[in-house]
Design a protein around this nucleic acid. Structure first.
Lengths: 197, 197
DNA sequence: TTGAAAAACGAACGAACGTTCGGTACGCTT
DNA sequence: AAGCGTACCGAACGTTCGTTCGTTTTTCAA
């Protein structure tokens, strides 16, 4: 009788259970307002299991961060796939980011709003992480083939996606009246007008 | 012999000394990585003096936050003063924000990047603070008199200032090669193209 | 000069935290 | 069945932190 995790999760299931719980608590109350004992209680696992899988609290946060960045990167790659046009790509990226913000607000909260450098001391700033580099790359390609005006790449990337990212923050802060997706057309239109040639 | 604070500051001087030290430590290492004892040591004051003036650690952070928001609001008001034109106002606001970022990076770091809701639990999100409301108001006025296209105000404000704010973050993260001010023209141009009618 | 309020001081405290470690339970190979 | 390594358990530990409070110093009006 090989029952599949009847009550307490074991192995990989436990690992994921802890990470999901940690994400909830970290994004709700913040890293420093969440103790390992809080996670232990909420995830219904033991202290020892957490330390067995992650080593320490910081490493747990790092595992979570890496996992979420990977998801985000995959989202962006998928959005670009099959679209050669710069404008189409940018629009698809924003659309995907808006979807993720609506579907997994905690994930976006953690990736965008959390001050990782406060607890992941020698992690590079988020602007140099793969997903953000990919967004900048799309705009640079647009400049190279003339779809986008010849301006400083950082400025172009900030102009194209800065408004969208700000709208995502507003949405996470519950400052918007309507669902984030309903603003997509206007947000993209603004960003594109800013940089198109 | 009424010597003016020869060694140890007293009264208002001490209060400001503590706040300045707290700003340095909070923006460098973060709120939770800075203990009251750290501030005591760095500011060369006593624990008792800090508690006498601020009550507790959270209240110290709140006093700092309020003070910095006030400065920022005054900066924005001054930038708008005497300029009736929406585009001129927006440009002046961005210019002033860029100056402040270069002159007082710690202040901007603390106001923009710090996750205040982690330690100032019932503080409203920064987007609803006075300075940000003022920026939105400028854009709304522009919509009303036709300088700006008729779009959702939040979208317009995000498009106009989102790129600039993102550039400020990049600058604080040392991701830019040149001084922030040198990007001003391009950044404003992008924002304005995004929303002008 | 005096007296009382305000400001400053800092040793001490208790709670909470991240982590350790000696142990048990389980699954797999021999 | 025996041996072994991995997974899991949780009481206990040492440290750090925010805060308290009895005391001393300074200020200033009377």
């Amino acid at each position: 009788m090989s029952q599949e995790s009847p009550k307490r999760p074991r192995g990989t299931a436990l690992r994921e259970q802890v990470m999901q719980t940690a994400l909830e608590l970290f994004s709700d109350r913040g890293y420093f307002n969440t103790s390992i004992h809080d996670i232990r209680r909420a995830a219904d696992v033991s202290i020892g299991a957490i330390y067995h899988h992650f080593g320490n609290k910081e490493a747990l946060a790092k595992a979570l961060y890496d996992d979420l960045l990977m998801h985000m990167e995959r989202d962006i790659d998928e959005a670009c796939f099959g679209r050669g046009n710069c404008a189409d790509r940018c629009r698809a990226i924003i659309a995907r980011l808006f979807e993720s913000t609506a579907e997994s607000p905690r994930m976006m909260q953690f990736v965008l709003l959390a001050q990782h450098r406060e607890f992941l001391r020698d992690e590079p700033p988020i602007c140099s992480s793969r997903p953000f580099q990919a967004m900048k790359q799309v705009v640079e390609d647009g400049i190279r083939n003339g779809d986008v005006r010849a301006i400083e790449p950082w400025v172009a990337a900030s102009a194209m996606f800065g408004g969208a990212l700000r709208m995502m923050q507003l949405s996470l802060d519950n400052a918007l009246e309507r669902p984030l997706a309903t603003y997509l057309d206007e947000v993209f239109e603004c960003g594109w007008r800013a940089i198109r040639s």
